[in-house]
Each structure stands twice: as C-alpha cells, then as structure tokens.
Design a protein around this nucleic acid. Structure first.
Lengths: 234, 234
DNA sequence: TGTATATACTTGTATATACAAGTGCTTTGC
DNA sequence: GCAAAGCACTTGTATATACAAGTATATACA
C-alpha cells in the first residue's frame, strides 16, 4: 500500500473491524488524524472521504465523523439512485414533480408507515425521465418524523431525488421489496406514455432507518422500457 | 448548484448527454478545464474524479480522461466487490488464494469463454472470509487475452480481488447470472466449514467486456450465512 | 430565567504549488 | 535501420493555506 491516504484508510478500517471504533463511535477529526499520522489535513481528509463514500463513515459538517451502523447486505441487490443510474448510461436525466404535499394518513398508509391513522404524512409523486422519455413513476409516502424538511426540498434541481435526499438525512438500515407486473390504469398509461395494454413493472419498497419506517414507495416502470435481473447490461 | 466543482460536473454531464462528448471520446484535460471554467486544477480534478467514481468517465494516468461506454442497467442488481461489501458491514475481510495458474482449456471451459479448446486459460480459486469465517468460494476462469497479467496479481493484498482487478483493467459491459441451491461436495464442505448436509448458494456469472467474454466465475456461499433478495438488510 | 452573542470546534470548498509517475512522440546516437 | 534518451503531456499524490459554513457550548446581558 503505497499512497499515504490509503495507509490511513486501512488503519481506520482496522480499528473499526477490530472493535476499537464501534458503530456510532466518533472518529478522530481531520486535524487529529493529520497530527497522528504526520500528514496534512487534506490527506487525512481524503481517507475519511473515501470511507464515507463507501458507506463506512458518516460525516456531518460542524459535528464530526462517525462510524456508520452495521449494514449486513446481499451482494446482488442494491438500491441505486435513478438519477445516477441514468447518468451512468450517459443519458439525460430529468424529473417532474407532480405532487408534493402533506396528507392526512388513511388507515392503509398509516399501517404501512407504522403510524397512528389520522396523523400527517408527506406524499410525493414524481415522474423520472430518461432522454425525455418517462421510465419511472414514483409515489412515496414519508414519515414526517424522520424527514421534517421533506416538503421544502426542490426535487429535480441538481438531480435531487426523494430517495437521494432520504438517504442523506436518514441512514437506511433495511428494506422490503415486492416486485410484480401490473396492468396500467389510465392515468399511469398517459403519464408513462404507455402503449395500449402495455404492462407495468411495479416495485413496492419500504425503507427502514434505525428508529423505524422512513418511507413507503411504489415505483412503476414501463414494461417495454425496463427490466430486472436475468441477463444484465451494465 | 453552489459549489463550483459541481457546476463543472454538471456541465460535463450535459455535454455527454447532449452528444457533444460521445462514448469513448476524450475529455478535456484537468488544466484545460481549469482554464475554461476559471478554477484551479484541483477543482477541475474534483469534478472529473466524481464522474469517474460514478462510472461516467474513465481516467488513465499519462493518457487522459475518456467517456465510458454506455451501460444500460437494471437498478436493482449490481455486482459488488466482496471486499467492499464486507468492509461495508464493518467486518474484517480476508482472503486466501488456493490456486492461481494457467490451465489447458477443456471443451467446457473453452466454450464458456468462447475460446478454442486446448488453448491457455487462467484459473483462480479463492476463499473469501468475513471475520475469519468463510463466506464465498470463488472459482474463476479468465480469458488471458483481456487480462495477460492476471497470474501476477497478489490477490488478498490491499483487498485486491479478481473481480476488482478485472473491473479495473477491462470495462465490463454485460453479465449473465444463474443462481441456484446446490449440495456441497466434501471439498466444499470442508473449505466453507459447512455443517453436514448444509446446502450452498451457487452463483454462476459470466462477465463481458466490449470485445468478448472476460471471465466465468462460480461463487459458492454457505447457505446458512448468506442470502439473496426478499427482505434486505443493507 | 430566558435570549442573544461570542467562541471554539467541526467539516466543506477553493487555491497555489511541487513533485511523482505513466504514456506517446521526437530526437539523438550508434 | 534501430534502440535509447529526452521531451511534452497526462493523471496521481501531497502539502500549506485561507475562508465558508454548520454545530454545540459557554458567556453576557436584559
């Protein structure tokens, strides 16, 4: 391991894996690490940034750097930000906010989010487009407790997506998936610009943070322009 | 979009998506971008690094920066490096190289890699461990044409894995997956430290580069310590 | 008591600089 | 002709510095 920032990165990983730094523990600040390893602050910072990118650390301006919670995961399934995914294909990403509001929770939604019915729930409805063609209709119900500023977000600007925002403000620890093929309602057909009779791929997902259910989302993809699994191009 | 490096990143994305920069095209150098946007080289570099991390650009020391090939992909399935995956859980990663050699290709392997039988094929057999407990036996056959230095790699050192190495030297464009549950042979049982009668999860994967099949891998996971899909913790 | 204000920390952004190291092309020397 | 050396360019690493901005605590003041 030649470069010095990698040495520091490995040293930090060793501390985390060795139990010296437990999940949630505070990591030494950039300046402290710089002193300890005899490097400049920017070099120490690079190691911390790399680990933060990998999800091992969580950094907050003004507060410090902390060890992320343990995240046992399967190696084949991962939730990707739709904006990143489309950019990764070299295509233009664009999204349209159809709805962004507070709603009174009906019994079904309250149950899904583990809340009392009648309480307030945030709801968003976005249409994600790849090269100006819709590829996903996202309907999302959010527990206000975990993301009180959700309604103030400017989704679409700077490629900000609901999933990307939530991932930033709440560390996600678990998810439930349900994948199915469904017929398109008239609304869906017009929004996704579907051909007559074209089916939709529906992904229902519930995401959990450390303190409970963060959001419930239903993602509708046009059957002809989207697929999951089997032979993969990436 | 406040920070300047994000402005540059967005500008580059716009050029790629707008067709001004096609796949494979050369991107302006760090110094050129710095002049064009009136920032320092380090700021331009940050934008390029971010896009390289996302897989949009490919950077090569001494050569330059290029637009990566298009990579249409599903958003739910992704191949993660086992070392990163384990580190992401905050666990210790370690791997043991059991075999690393050139073999004469038998008919079956030659067919899998799309080569003439009797030719030379690189073969590796590694045991990946999480907290000293084996979680994956990886058997991999590699087309020497795409990775001539494969046998010279020091897998295990610096968390270098075959998958990570191949991903670095060859841009992967496609993959085939086959997932199944199999019984464990005696060898497998002892290597993976399996209980009597414990099944294995077997993932067979063929990875493609732009010019053909790069490698064929069989990954065996202990059924009791590994799972895919359904309810996910991550 | 409660509310501002100051402060000491943290991470985030940006710059200028220096040298290392890899690639491709030209020039030199045999 | 041909191989070695040099050169111009690229990205990679590392440093020192400066200021912006977010967080929490202590302090002063009404």
């Amino acid at each position: 391991m030649e470069p010095r920032y990698l040495t520091i990165k490995q040293a930090l990983l060793a501390r985390i894996e060795g139990g010296i730094l437990a999940a949630g523990a505070r990591v030494a600040s950039e300046n402290e690490l710089a002193s300890e390893f005899g490097v400049s602050r920017m070099t120490a910072r690079r190691a911390l940034d790399a680990l933060a990118d990998e999800g091992v650390l969580i950094r907050t301006q003004g507060l410090g750097t902390f060890v992320a919670d343990e995240r046992p995961s399967s190696n084949l399934i991962e939730i990707r930000n739709i904006a990143d995914e489309i950019h990764g294909r070299g295509h233009a990403y664009h999204c349209q906010v159809l709805t962004l509001e507070a709603q009174a929770a009906d019994a079904k939604q309250a149950l899904r989010l583990g809340l009392a019915s009648g309480g307030e729930i945030f709801f968003s409805r976005l249409l994600h487009c790849e090269n100006a063609l819709p590829v996903q209709l996202e309907e999302r119900w959010v527990n206000p407790k975990f993301a009180p500023d959700y309604l103030a977000q400017r989704f679409g600007a700077q490629d900000l997506t609901p999933s990307g925002y939530l991932n930033k403000v709440v560390p996600l620890t678990e998810a439930d998936h349900l994948i199915e093929a469904v017929g398109a309602s008239e609304t869906l057909q017009s929004l996704l610009q579907l051909a007559q009779g074209e089916p939709c791929l529906k992904v229902s997902r519930r995401t959990f943070g450390p303190a409970g259910i963060v959001s419930y989302a239903q993602l509708f993809h046009p059957g002809s322009r989207y697929r999951l699994g089997g032979h993969i191009n990436y």
